[in-house]
Structures are given as C-alpha cells and as structure tokens.
Amino acid sequence: MKTILAILVLAFSSRQAAAQYSYSASLTGNVSVYAIQSLTFTGGSVIPSFNSLDDYINGVVANNYVSVGVKSNVSWTLSVQAESAFFTPSSQSGSTNMPCSVLSVKQSGSNNYIPLSTNSQTIKTGNKGGLNNAGNSFGLDLRYNPGFMYKGDIYNLGLIYTLTHQ
C-alpha cells in the first residue's frame, strides 16, 4: 500500500513540475433565425393580341411571360389566384362577363395549365435555398383562351401570387 501511494505521489509531483498551466474563460451567444421568404418577378406585363381565327380557336400562349425567383429558408409553396372573378373591359363596349378562367397559368416546362379562379391554387413547390437552388428560379407561361363569346376590347385582370411555407 505504501509503495503504491509513493508511486502515485511521485507521478503527481513529476507531472506538476512539467505541466503547462492552462486557464480558460468562455463566452456564450446565440443566433435567432426567423422564417424568411422573398419573391421576385421579372417581366410580367403581357398584352396578347388576337389577330387570327386560329387565335380564337386555340387561344394565345405567352411562354415565359414572367421570371420568378424564390428565396426561402423553409420549404415553400407558390400559389396564384385572380383578383376578381371577371375581366374588366377597358371600354363600355366590352363584355363584363368574361370569367378569369379563360386565363390559365403553368410553370414553364410543365404540361398542365391551371385555369384561374378567385381561389388560391398551387403552381409550384420547392425546397429551402436561394435563387441558385434547383427549382427556385423558373418561368411561368400564360394561355388566353376566351373563344368567340366576348366582344372585342382590351381586358384587365389582376393576378395575386402568394408565397407560403409548407
């Protein structure tokens, strides 16, 4: 027992003699991150012309009528809705009963046009990231297909795009 204790004391003493004394101090901090989303549009002012019979039969398409950029630190959903149920004619001679559903929208490159309504409808979903993240920068296509039911005029309709987190 004495021998063991002596060894321990010797070991203790020798380490202390060669020790590099270390003293420490610390600081604490934090980062508070909120859910952050940003939506940008480039372009978007489109006035399609109906100049031929074919335009009235098949409608007019505006490919990539707007470029959309999403920045988000959460998974996101982009939806669209019409501001009103009917187009507003620019003159009194225009039709007041042209529904917003004659206008359809889709993501460029996809196949499914979504007829507009005053209810919000999902156009695209994506993952967190900036503009360089895959799927966070894309174009939208519009298709106008009023048929032969409405009088000639310039018609207006507001679209509301909403970015939310999933």
């Binding site: 590099q20 610390s26 600081l27 604490t28 901090g29 508070s32 991150v33 952050i36 900036g130």
Partner: peptide, 17 residues
C-alpha cells in the same frame, strides 16, 4: 438560406496556456 428557423446557441472557450 440554409439556416432553418430556430435558435442556435454557442459557447466559445478561450484558453491561455
């Protein structure tokens, strides 16, 4: 945008030898 919402807490230790 890789920092998801929430709190990030850290402690920094300084050592003098």
């Amino acid at each position: 945008y890789l920092m998801v919402p929430g709190n990030y807490n850290f402690s920094v230790l300084f050592t003098m030898t």
